[in-house]
Design a protein around this nucleic acid. Structure first.
Lengths: 111, 111
DNA sequence: CAGGATCCGTCCCGATACTG
DNA sequence: CAGTATCGGGACGGATCCTG
């Protein structure tokens, strides 16, 4: 709780504070639901995933998955068949993040 | 981890899932820093708070404080003097939320 | 001292259409 | 099957100025 120094602008912390960095990983509409679904099924194909997430568009799903992959939360497995097959699974980090966020769930239920 | 039902659109969960609700409380640029600062000092005047948060504008600080108050995370104490004096403190919920988010800090440090 | 009002740029997100 | 390309609206955040 000692992240803020009066002489440093906030943007510095947004790029360095671990808590804010962790929050940024899931601060987009579909990211957490995507992580939940993958965690729930261990491994999912792109279209399987899309069917679970009612209302999501290809644009958002593909973009979110790319970012989650880049952030090391999900693992993309591509099989070079025709038609192509891709599956997504959680990394250990992704699993750890979901576990950590369970703490928030209890809070939300109280409030 | 069983929040998502294939037959229900996501917006429903955004308004009902405790985890997403808890996340929404702090999913704005200055909210968490504001909570940290108040928690750090127990109680702060508006301008004291503003001086700690380098770069924040009156618009954002006042708006964030109003919302945090409305969400039950901070407590606004107004003294009808001239000039007016207002102090902000954390509610028990606000304190609890900060404690919970400490879990995220550990995660961010690993990643 | 503690804000409110207004304007404005940016980025998130959705809709639609197309592809190796 | 698993995406990409493009367009557009709306919310979020910042800048500036004003006030009881």
């Amino acid at each position: 709780m000692d992240y803020l120094n009066p002489n440093v602008p906030l943007d510095y912390y947004h790029d360095n504070c671990p808590t804010l960095m962790a929050l940024k990983l899931v601060n987009q509409k579909w990211k957490l639901p995507i992580l939940w679904q993958i965690g729930l099924h261990q491994e999912l194909h792109y279209n399987q995933l899309k069917r679970q997430l009612i209302g999501i568009t290809n644009t958002m799903l593909a973009k979110s998955l790319r970012e989650l992959d880049g952030d090391g939360l999900v693992l993309r497995h591509q099989f070079d068949t025709t038609p192509p097959t891709v599956t997504y699974a959680l990394t250990d980090q992704g699993k750890q993040l979901l576990i950590t966020l369970e703490g928030l769930r209890e809070f939300g239920e109280i409030g």
